[in-house]
Design a protein around this nucleic acid. Structure first.
Length: 902
RNA sequence: GGGAGUUUAGCUCAGCUGGUUCAGAGCAUCUGCCUUACAAGCAGAGGGCCGGGGGUUCGAAUCCCUCAACUCCCACCA
């Protein structure tokens, strides 16, 4: 089989890991590494954003596990009250059941059944991706213990005076029929109209005018008008002082009031005041003691208050009232107008500002320590630009409306008393105790619990604490060990909803940050940069992708093109690249596996492969092998160091790229090619042993990114004990070069540099072959004028990789030799037949000469500039001097060559 | 209306507190190869006034100013 087939092994290994309990964590003496998953909506299904987010978490967790940490990734789901309740309501509607026909208990039964049937699908899907979560710790935000924590926190904050109840102007979602927090409202530009309405002046014309023209985008709200407001400095309206005007159609007489809130330049400079349905109007209404006329039902239809348009929807009324005004001659004009309208984040309905009784959390005290923790980098934001966003929001924070007029969620533990007033307590029984202080005769049946539930985020803000039961049992072993968690991986879209509030909760309830760092992912877009959506049909099904490219391939594809905070332009080609890489690894193993250390007499490989460690080598290890091992060992080491530092800065895709190139270019392209025995010959046992060791380390480095294929090959390399898996192996560290140096080897920086010179020479010879159409199989001779930049020790490697029959030191050149220079070393290749094309050669040489002379000029300019020599650091100047002498050497060689040819 | 970010090769992006031959990487493209691990591959090659303009400096993709385009966040102008 030439191609790797991921599907045949991926599910096998996931089950194996689970069966060995590798992902389960209990507190022990090791250092913990903790991540709590951003809990997806319990009824949600996996999309590309989840794939990205969870792959990132898995990479971090798997790496930490291999670095010797006690890694714990806590999975779970969120009850998502509005979204889930909306889904259940829709599902019931399909069956002809209206929510209003059900009791609370009946509805909740349906909801729980729905949750049991559809809930947690997403968690199963995460296993397909390879997510190494500790499934034994799976939590749901409405688990009894989780809900108990939420209620405990509510009671606690209430008793501290941080939660209050009051009538406020809130964002009302007429579709879900609940209040929303400010964060749940999305403002979007909308193409609307600006209507100019005529308000007749009571008692006849003033200054020749019989009416005031008022501009509004919402003519239907005139039903609730209680005043017309103008700016006191507006000369157009000074004469209206003390006058009243008639609300069109409605016929209500309302006063003209004066307040400099009104912008004289907008519309006509006259503003209608509807305190029940506009935040600003409400403020003005309070200031002037105006009546509040609420004209809407909770579902956005007109109520009976005014007796007009009763029962009709607000948008239908807008059209109708516009016509009626027109007909009555009360519409001056209508203009196109673009304005911002708020919509519900969940249902998409246009938000209606509505005055209602709600519960709020006082935020300023909570915000202060939470702001500090981020600004002084106690909690690190990656990328740091989100500190600005966070700072701005936290500094202007408003109180948090936490009550929702829904049934799915934690019910607010406030109990109303028959005689008025209420008590707040953890349980009805405790509530009764409190109630008894007011009236000892009360029984449980007299208490009426608040009908509303809490905002979903009021449970998720406790997530990093409550998953470890740190609210109910603040001193338990888990919370002490795993908290604070290490990294949080989430999208910037919920920085206020969730991240900020978790920090507040952490600081308030644990007096400690909830996590050490927040890695903000971008949004997964299609390759045209469009957001993925069902409507556009541009959102691929992750499970299909996994089936097609393997989980490793999909993970790799996403990881290669994501950096913190940047959106990912998703292209299936990326998964293809990931799959191809898996194939590359697979084939590298096939090659190594085919190598034999002993051969039978007839030249064919023995069926029985000698164990390299057992056999006594019958011959010296080839020098090219020894050098290749030494070089790759250094290369591996320097790459490890690089990867470490990239991880420290959360540059995961760069780290993967380093590993990718290490495997593909250095290991497969160079190392394996150097040590590869000729067909039909044996490999030296030492070389084979080293090669397998290298492969093992490479698999370890790659495992956090592509867990499946690495585990499969880990077991192919040798027979292993049940728990000897790459998943829980120890990540190689980058100190091995030092050990080797102690044995008398050369430092690895130097060997890497020397090897690069050989690479350049090989590439140059290959280019000559290509230009002259010389087959790679045809041996060439190489002549060299050795100097300090000629890595003579790699002679054997050079011969093998460039297909040379000999490398000979010479003093000078022959006109029939093709020449090239690596750094300062001059190389020549005698060409077999036909010789070289002198003219073409000369053109090339002269171009090169011109470039080198130009380069030398710029160097000389710097060096002859006294201010450069005087002010630049010594190292920079010395470097320029080296550049100068190198260039001069090359120019001399080029000139000599040109002289020969012409 | 405020604030932040982005702009470097066809695409996606690296280039940290100015100085190595600094103009890079991966992918894509082009050319030649089915060479006994891999055509999901190998070998080679091309490709960019670093958004425009100005300034600071011996020296600018990098620092400052300005203009332009795009993106995002926040904000109660009907």
């Amino acid at each position: 089989m030439k191609n790797y087939d991921p599907s045949s092994i991926e599910s096998k290994w996931y089950e194996y890991w689970i069966s060995r309990g590798f992902f389960h964590s209990e507190p022990d003496s090791r250092e913990p590494y903790t991540i709590v998953i951003p809990p997806p909506n319990v009824t949600g299904i996996l999309h590309m954003g989840h794939i990205l987010n969870n792959t990132l978490q898995d990479v971090l967790v798997r790496r930490a596990r291999m670095m010797g940490k006690n890694a714990c990734w806590v999975p779970g789901t969120d009850h998502a009250s509005i979204a889930t309740e909306a889904k259940v309501v829709a599902k019931l509607a399909e069956q002809g059941i209206k929510k209003s026909d059900l009791s609370r208990e009946e509805f909740l039964q349906h909801a729980w059944r729905w949750k049991e049937e559809h809930g947690g699908i997403i968690l199963k899907q995460l296993r397909t991706l390879g997510a190494s979560c500790d499934w034994d710790r799976t939590k749901f935000t409405m688990d009894p213990a989780m809900s108990e924590s939420v209620i405990k926190v509510f009671v606690d904050l209430y008793n501290k005076g941080l939660i209050y109840r009051g009538v406020r102007m809130v964002n009302w979602d007429p579709a879900a029929q609940t209040a929303l927090s400010d964060e749940e409202v999305i403002h979007r530009e909308q193409q609307g109209k600006l209507y100019y309405l005529r308000y007749k002046i009571e008692g006849g014309p003033v200054d020749g005018k019989d009416s005031v023209i008022v501009a509004t985008t919402r003519p239907e709200t005139i039903l609730g008008d209680v005043a017309v407001c103008v700016n006191p400095n507006d000369p157009r309206y000074t004469s209206l002082k003390g006058k009243r005007v008639i609300v069109p159609l409605v016929g209500r007489s309302v006063p003209v009031i004066y307040d400099d809130y009104v912008d004289m330049d907008f519309g006509t400079g006259a503003l209608k005041i509807t305190p029940a349905h506009d935040v600003n109007d409400y403020v003005l209404g309070e200031r002037f003691g105006l009546e509040v006329i609420d004209i809407f039902n909770p579902d956005g239809t007109i109520n009976e208050r005014v007796g007009l348009y009763v029962g009709q929807d607000r948008f239908a009324v807008r059209d109708q009232i516009s016509k009626d005004l027109q007909a009555a001659g009360l519409m001056e004009k209508v203009e196109d107008y673009t304005n911002k309208v708020g919509f519900s984040e969940r249902t998409g309905a246009a938000i209606e500002p509505k005055l209602s009784m709600q519960w709020f959390v006082k935020m300023d005290g909570l915000a202060e320590p939470a702001l500090k923790a981020v600004m002084d980098d106690t909690i690190r934001f990656v990328p740091s630009k989100y500190k600005n966003t966070y700072n701005h929001w936290m500094s202007n924070i408003k109180d948090w409306c936490i009550s929702r007029q829904l049934w799915w969620g934690q019910r607010i533990p406030a109990y109303f008393l028959p005689a008025g007033g209420y008590v707040v307590a953890q349980t009805p029984e405790e509530a009764l105790e409190l109630a008894h202080r007011k009236d000892p005769s009360l029984t449980l049946a007299d208490l009426r619990q608040d009908e509303d539930v809490l905002d979903t985020w009021f449970s998720s803000w406790l997530w990093p604490i409550s998953v470890f039961d740190g609210i109910r049992n603040p001193d338990n072993a888990d919370i002490g060990y795993y908290y604070p968690t290490n990294d949080l991986v989430t999208g910037p879209d919920i920085i206020f909803f969730w991240v900020a509030r978790m920090i507040m909760a952490g600081e308030h309830f644990r007096h400690n940050k909830p996590f050490g760092a927040v890695y903000f992912t971008g949004i997964v877009r299609d390759k045209l940069g469009r957001k993925m959506s069902k409507q556009l049909g541009n959102s691929p099904d992750p499970l299909e992708l996994i089936e097609k490219y393997g989980a490793d391939g999909v993970r790799m594809g996403l990881m290669l093109s994501t950096s913190a905070g940047n959106d990912v332009m998703f292209d299936e080609a990326m998964c293809e690249q990931g799959r191809n890489f898996g194939n590359k690894i697979w084939n590298a193993w096939r090659l190594i596996e085919s190598w034999q250390t002993t051969l039978s007499d007839n030249g064919h490989s023995d069926l029985c492969v000698a164990r390299p460690t057992e056999g006594v080598p019958t011959a010296e290890q080839p020098i090219s092998d020894r050098l290749a091992v030494e070089w790759f060992s250094s290369k591996l080491d320097s790459s490890l160091a690089e990867i470490d530092s990239l991880f420290a800065n959360y540059r995961l895709s760069d780290a993967l790229m380093v590993a990718y190139k290490l495997f593909w270019d250095d290991f497969s392209g160079w190392y394996l090619e150097i040590v590869k025995p000729a067909y039909g010959t044996a490999i030296h046992p030492h070389t084979l042993a080293s090669t397998k060791l290298f492969l093992e380390k490479l698999l370890q480095i790659l495992h956090p990114f592509i867990p499946f294929i690495t585990e499969e090959l880990w077991h192919s390399i040798r027979n292993r004990e049940a728990d000897d898996c790459v998943t829980i192996s120890s990540m190689p560290t980058s100190q091995e070069a030092d050990d080797r140096n102690a044995d008398g080897g050369s430092g690895y920086a130097e060997i890497l540099a020397r090897f690069d010179l050989i690479r350049e020479a090989v590439t140059a010879i290959r280019a000559i072959r290509r230009a002259r159409n010389i087959s790679p199989k045809e041996p060439l001779e190489l002549k060299v004028v050795p100097d300090e930049n000629f890595p003579a020790e790699f002679d054997a490697v050079l011969q093998k990789m460039a297909g040379l029959s000999s490398v000979e030191a010479v003093e000078g050149k022959d006109p029939e030799w093709e020449a090239f220079i690596v750094k300062t070393t001059r190389y020549f290749v005698p060409l077999p037949a036909g010789g070289i094309d002198r003219d073409a050669e000369l053109v090339k040489l002269r171009e090169e000469l011109a470039y080198q002379q130009g380069f030398l000029n710029t160097v000389m300019q710097k060096l002859s500039n006294e201010r450069f020599v005087g002010s630049a650091p010594a190292a920079i100047v010395a470097n320029e001097q080296t550049k100068r002498s190198d260039a001069e050497a090359r120019i001399a060689a080029l000139k000599e060559r040109i002289a020969q040819l012409s």
